[in-house]
Amino acid sequence: MSRPLKMKMPKKAFLCVVLTCLAPLWLSAAHAQETATEAAGFSEPVDPGASVPTYKIELKDGALLPETLVVPAKTRFKLHVTNIGTKPSEFESNQMRLEEVLFMGMDVTMTVTPLDSGEYDYFDEFQPGVMGKLIAKEVAQ
């Protein structure tokens, strides 16, 4: 009686070890399916693969969603800004030369000229307080 029990224990342990060893492999394989941009710390554009990528920003009564965006430097890109709040807002960035008044429910797509690597502010001028940060950084070759 004791023999089969003894056999069972190592078998179970072995299975557990194998599974825990394989799990990260399997998970990383799934991750590899995602675009390389995420892995490099860049924000995901809404249209991966487009020649001029578009990033989404939503304004909600003073809140900026997201508050941080990481984009490739020296590359033209677009910002699609939507006011999903209950008050009018003015999306503004002196540093990126953008200024757009958005009434409730309105959206606008703006082209941003290629940026040198660095940090650039964006905010809702009608509801100041939160400062968004767009980080432009070089794509590692």
Binding site: M110, T111, V112, M131
Partner: peptide
């Protein structure tokens, strides 16, 4: 940014000349 953005101007046009946002940010 609105009307010339479709054209590829030489890269130096977009180069940042200085960065004083740490001293006095225009935001």
């Amino acid at each position: 940014s609105k009307h010339l953005s479709a054209f590829d101007l030489p890269g130096w046009v977009y180069a940042t000349v200085w960065d004083t946002s740490g001293v006095l940010s225009d935001s």
